[in-house]
C-alpha cells in the first residue's frame, strides 16, 4: 500500500511538473524565438538563425524606407493616448458614482459598461463602421479614438471600482466629520488612495488600444491605419521580415513598461485578484 502510494505521488509530480514545464516553454519560447529571428541577417525566417545583424532594425528605423510603419506607429500612440485619457476621466467619474451604490440599477449599469469585454470585437467594429458611415463620417483618427474608448474603458472601470470597494469607508467618514467638503475629500483622500487602481487600469487600457485589431480594422483607411493593422498587412502579403524588428521593439517596450508598472502599482497582483 505504502509503495503504491509513493508510486502514485511520484507519477503525480512527474506528470503535473512535466506539463507545467511544457506550459512555461509554450508561453515563453515563441517570444524568445521571435526576438532571436529579428537579429538575423537572412531574408527568410529560417531556424536556427544564421548570422547576427541589426539589418532589420536599420531598415525599420530608416525614415524613408519605413515611413508608413512610422506613421502607423504614431497613429497607434495618438489613438491609445487620447482614448485612454478620455477613458480615465469617464471611468473614474462613473466608478465614483457607482462603486458604493447598492441599487439594482447601479449593478445593471456596471454590467452594461463592462459588456464590450464580452462582445466579439469584430461585431462592435462592424457596428461602428455602419453607424459612423450612416452618420456621414469619413474614416479618421477621431472615430478610432471613439471606438477604442468603448473597448478599452472597461479595464479602467474594473480596476478603479475594485480599489474603491477596498477603500475603508471610515476614512471618508472621518474626513467629512472633520469638516472637509465632498470635493476636498475626493481630492485629498479618495483619489490618492485609488490612484494605483486607476493607473493600473489606464495602463491595461493603453496596451489594449495599442493591440486592438477588430475596431481599427473597420474604422481605419490607408492613411489612418494603426501599427497592428499595418503589421497584419505585412504578414498577409509577402512576409516582410521587418515585422520581426517591429516585434522586437514591441517586446522590449512591453517588458520595460511591465517592469515599471509592477514596481509602481503592483500590476500583476491587481490582474490576479
Amino acid at each position: 500500500m505504502g509503495r503504491r502510494q509513493s508510486f502514485l505521488d511520484l507519477s503525480y509530480s512527474l506528470v503535473i511538473g512535466g506539463i507545467a514545464i511544457l506550459a512555461v516553454l509554450i508561453i515563453v519560447s515563441p517570444v524568445v524565438i521571435a526576438l532571436m529571428i529579428s537579429f538575423t541577417e537572412g531574408r527568410s525566417l529560417k531556424f536556427p538563425p544564421t548570422g547576427f545583424s541589426f539589418g532589420w532594425y536599420e531598415q525599420l528605423f530608416d525614415p524613408t524606407k519605413s515611413r508608413q510603419i512610422h506613421r502607423a506607429a504614431g497613429n497607434s500612440l495618438e489613438v491609445a493616448a487620447l482614448s485612454t485619457l478620455i477613458g480615465v476621466v469617464l471611468a473614474t467619474l462613473a466608478a465614483l458614482g457607482l462603486a458604493r451604490n447598492r441599487a439594482r440599477a447601479a449593478r445593471v449599469a456596471d454590467n452594461f459598461f463592462m459588456s464590450p469585454l464580452v462582445l466579439p470585437g469584430i461585431t462592435f467594429g462592424l457596428a461602428a463602421l455602419v453607424y459612423f458611415s450612416t452618420l456621414g463620417f469619413r474614416p479618421s483618427l477621431n472615430l478610432m479614438i471613439a471606438g477604442h474608448l468603448i473597448v478599452t474603458m472597461p479595464f479602467i472601470l474594473r480596476t478603479t471600482t475594485a480599489s474603491l470597494s477596498q477603500l475603508d469607508p471610515a476614512l471618508l467618514d472621518s474626513s467629512q466629520s472633520l469638516g472637509a467638503s465632498w470635493f476636498y475629500t475626493l481630492r485629498r483622500v479618495t483619489l490618492p488612495l485609488i490612484f494605483p487602481g486607476i493607473a493600473a487600469g489606464a495602463f491595461l487600457a493603453f496596451m489594449a488600444s495599442i493591440d486592438n485589431v477588430p475596431v481599427s480594422l473597420f474604422l481605419s483607411n490607408a492613411r489612418t491605419d494603426t501599427l497592428p493593422i499595418r503589421m497584419w498587412g505585412m504578414m498577409e502579403s509577402t512576409l516582410d521580415v521587418r515585422v520581426a524588428a517591429v516585434s522586437g521593439v514591441l517586446i522590449a517596450a512591453a517588458f520595460v513598461l511591465m517592469l515599471i508598472m509592477e514596481w509602481t502599482v503592483g500590476l500583476t497582483r491587481r490582474m490576479r485578484d
Binding site: I33, I210, M231, M235
Partner: peptide, 14 residues
C-alpha cells in the same frame, strides 16, 4: 501585454 500580432508572428517563425 504583447500585441496579438507579435504573438501570431512568433508562431509563424516557430
Amino acid at each position: 501585454l504583447l500585441s496579438v500580432v507579435v504573438r501570431t508572428f512568433a508562431w509563424i517563425v516557430v
